[in-house]
Simulated scan of single mutants.
Amino acid sequence: MADLRTDWTKEEISNIYHTSLMELIYRAATVHRKHHETGEVQVCTLLSIKTGGCPEDCAYCPQSAHHDTDVEAEDMLEPEEILSAAERAKEAGSTRFCMGAAWRCGRETKDFDQVLDMVSEITDMGMEVCCTLGMLTDEQAEKLKEAGLYAYNHNLDSSEDFYNRIISTRKYQDRLDTIERVRENDISVCSGGIIGMGETDEDRIELIHNLSTMPEHPESVPVNALIAVEGTPLEDQPKVPWYDMARMIATARITMPDSMVRLSAGRVDMNMEEQALCFMAGANSIFTGDKLLTTQNNELSEDKRMFDILGLKPREAFKDAKEEHIPDTVEAAE
């Protein structure tokens, strides 16, 4: 098995990215087979526990208070609703439950305390729990770890230059600092990006470079296609073609061979054949369920049919996890 590398150069990644598509997919599939069980896919469910009213001005996001979209600011969901959603997700086959809140940063309020309680209770169900709550302080990251949080999502989105052109309310370094705090507290890092926002190939290559040269590769790398939402500054962006997604996934797979590479937003616009080529290119994680925060996602019945036809199976929770990440309830069940 090839050694993991964190010293990739932009030139090396550019050469990989610009490889002819079929050759690139073949190479990525070869790497994937060496590092992962083929046909195994991590099935995740994402729930927006606090929707809308976000003070950030991310140009792609319908939850921003700066944009005139159909998304209204709402209070945080009640604990019973969150736990019920987690139970339904587990019954439907999900092994990771992700909670997202439209916050600029973690808030020192009863809402954050409620998130800590939900992390603990859902972990005890035997599911990996991931949160995306914006920027974190060291103390907040420590509290999330103590509650049993398995992973934290904080996407880099794009290259630093392009990021600073579509977001003004925080800096790229703020994202990197939060990722470092997460890592320092021994929480798995989930970080990827979005394509189709008007960025260049060079921006995409720099994004992969920034992720693949971190001291440790992110445990999970979501590759998202922009869902252009009316009322956002990017509402007129054209749909991302499937082959751009496959190219990004393959490049991520080759440069970060041990990471879970997630075929995320935009999958709803792909047919089964296009998704299959993305799995061939190294994707081994998806979100299932009818919503991705506020945008549409694939029907559960469609995903079950696709799994049957393609011979895919869900990855078990806490597979290959360090012992301290596994709750006592899961160990007892084994």
Rank of each mutant, 00 (worst) to 15 (best):
D138E: 15
R170E: 07
D290G: 01
P222L: 02
L47H: 02
G198M: 08
S188A: 10
D236W: 02
W242S: 15
I326P: 05
E160P: 03
M214G: 03
T69F: 09
I187M: 04
T137N: 12
Q173Y: 09
V268E: 15
E56T: 12
S64G: 14
A92I: 03
G311A: 10
S159C: 06
H209D: 04
M214Y: 04
K171C: 09
R253M: 08
L300R: 06
C61K: 10
V43H: 06
G289Q: 07
Q114W: 00
E184N: 15
P233G: 01
L211H: 02
T6R: 12
D161M: 06
M214T: 04
C61M: 09
L144K: 00
V129A: 01
R165I: 04
A332C: 11
T6F: 06
I309Y: 08
M197F: 13
S168M: 00
I122T: 04
D111Y: 15
Y60C: 00
P314K: 08
D111V: 00
I249D: 07
P314E: 05
T38C: 10
D186A: 11
L47C: 12
G282R: 01
A250M: 03
P257G: 00
V223C: 11
H209F: 12
T9P: 08
K313M: 14
I254C: 07
D124F: 02
Y60S: 00
D3M: 12
A281W: 03
L292I: 13
E199Y: 08
E128V: 08
G198S: 10
N210G: 05
